[in-house]
Design a protein around this nucleic acid. Structure first.
Length: 355
DNA sequence: AATTGGCGCAACCGCCCATTG
DNA sequence: GCAATGGGCGGTTGCGCCAAT
C-alpha cells in the first residue's frame, strides 16, 4: 500500500524537482496532455513515478495557477468555507480559481490556524470569566445555566481542530484549561475526557432512539455529556451546535421552542437540509461580549461528513456573493454578520495576511 | 560569524474509491 | 465477483530560508 505500481520500479527519483525535470514535464503535457499519469514519466523522459508527475503538474506547473500570497478576499473565503466544509481542502480550493488544495491547506495550517488558536485562548478567558460569573451556574444535573440571559448557551464543536472542553474545565483553573487546549491542538492529549454541551434533556429520562425527539430548549441550559460516557442514549454527541471556535456564546433565540431535534438515524445526507432549521435573524444585535461566536448555519451533526454538498454549495454561494459585494476590509463585519459569522472571521481576515 | 529555532512550502505517504480486465 | 490499477484527497514530513541569539 502507499506506493502505486509505477512507483515501485527502479530508478524512481524523489525529492525536489529540478528545472530540467519541470521543463520536460511541461513540454510533454503541453504537447500531448497527461493522459494516463503512470505512462507520463516514461514518455516524458522522467525518472519519476506517475503520481509524482501528477502532483508536480497540479500543484506547481499548471499554467492556470495563481502564484503569490493570498488576497484578503481569498483568505476571507477560506475562513468561511472552512467553517462549512471543515478540512475538505479540495472542495475549498475549487472555489478559489488558480489555487490548489495543497496551497489552501498550507495556508490554513501555517497562517489561519495560528490565529484560531490565539483567538480561542482569548475566547477561553471570556469563558472562564463567565463561569466565575454569579450569573452562570451549574445545577445538580450538570446543566450550565446563564441566569442573566437564558438565551445564551455555551457550545462546543466536534469539528476537527475545534476540540471540545474537558469536564474538568468546569471545576479547575483557567490555566489548566489553556494547557488542555494547547494539548488538543498538538495532539498530545487525544484521550482526554471530553464533553459536548447538549440540550438539557433530563438525565433521568430513559431515552431510546425510537422515542419522540427531544425539543430544543427555548431557555435554560445545556447538559454536559462526556464523549466517552457509557451513559445511554441521551443523544450523546449526536448533535452539537456548529462552531468555528470554542467556547462560544450563541444566541439560540432563533430556535423556535417547538423546533425538534432530529435523531441522527433520521437524518440521512438526502434530507439533512430540510431537517436543519434556518437562521431567521442576524446576530448583530447580540451583546458585544458574546460576539465571539462563528455561527454558520444553525447547527449540524457531530459528523461533518453529514453536511451535504447542496447545503454547502448554498452557503458558498451566499458567502461568495457577499464577499463580491462587500470589500472585506471595510465591510466584512456587516457581511459576516448577515451570514451569522462574527468576531473570529473579522479578526482573521483583517490580520492574518498583514505580515 | 556561527548556531539555533521557527516557519513556509513542496513533496511524499497512506488511504479510499472508482474503474478496468 | 475479485484483484489490480489509477486518480484523488487529507495528513505529514523534511528541506531551505531567515531572523534571533
Amino acid at each position: 500500500m502507499g506506493h502505486h505500481s509505477c512507483c515501485n520500479k527502479q530508478k524512481v527519483k524523489r525529492g525536489l524537482w529540478s528545472p530540467e525535470e519541470d521543463e520536460k514535464l511541461v513540454n510533454y503535457i503541453s504537447t500531448y496532455g497527461h493522459g494516463c499519469w503512470s505512462s507520463v514519466p516514461k514518455l516524458a523522459g522522467l525518472q519519476r513515478c506517475g503520481k509524482s508527475c501528477r502532483l508536480r503538474w497540479i500543484n506547481y506547473l499548471r499554467p492556470d495557477l495563481k502564484r503569490g500570497s493570498f488576497s484578503p478576499q481569498e483568505a476571507s473565503l477560506i475562513v468561511q468555507l472552512h467553517s462549512i466544509l471543515g478540512n475538505r481542502w479540495a472542495q475549498i480550493a475549487k472555489q478559489l480559481p488558480g489555487r490548489t488544495d495543497n496551497e489552501v491547506k498550507n495556508f490554513w495550517n501555517s497562517n489561519i490556524k495560528k490565529k484560531l488558536i490565539s483567538h480561542e485562548v482569548s475566547a477561553l478567558a471570556t469563558f472562564s470569566g463567565h463561569l466565575q460569573n454569579p450569573n452562570a451556574s451549574i445545577n445538580n444535573e450538570g446543566f450550565i445555566i446563564l441566569n442573566a440571559n437564558p438565551n445564551l448557551i455555551l457550545t462546543t464543536s466536534a469539528h476537527q481542530d475545534q476540540p471540545c472542553l474537558p469536564t474538568s474545565t468546569l471545576q479547575t483553573s483557567f490555566d489548566h484549561l489553556i494547557d488542555y487546549k494547547l494539548d488538543q491542538f498538538t495532539n498530545l492529549n487525544p484521550n482526554a475526557n471530553l464533553v459536548h454541551l447538549l440540550p438539557s434533556i433530563s438525565s433521568s429520562t430513559n431515552f431510546s432512539p425510537h422515542d419522540p425527539r427531544p425539543m430544543w430548549p427555548s431557555s435554560g441550559g445545556y447538559r454536559l455529556q462526556p464523549l466517552d460516557s457509557d451513559q445511554p442514549v441521551v443523544a450523546s454527541g449526536e448533535f452539537v451546535t456548529p462552531a468555528a471556535t470554542l467556547p462560544q456564546y450563541v444566541d439560540i433565540s432563533f430556535l423556535h421552542p417547538t423546533t425538534t431535534m432530529p435523531k441522527l438515524c433520521e437524518v440521512g445526507e438526502e434530507n439533512i437540509c430540510s431537517s436543519i432549521p434556518q437562521i431567521p435573524a442576524p446576530l448583530q444585535d447580540l451583546d458585544p461580549i458574546i460576539k465571539l461566536s462563528s455561527f454558520s448555519n444553525g447547527y449540524y451533526p457531530q459528523d461533518q461528513c453529514m453536511v451535504t454538498n447542496q447545503m454547502a454549495m448554498e452557503q458558498i454561494d451566499m458567502i461568495m456573493s457577499s464577499i463580491l459585494q462587500n470589500p472585506p476590509c471595510s465591510s466584512l463585519s456587516s457581511s459576516s454578520s448577515s451570514l451569522g459569522l462574527t468576531g473570529l472571521s473579522n479578526d482573521l481576515v483583517s490580520s492574518s495576511w498583514d505580515a
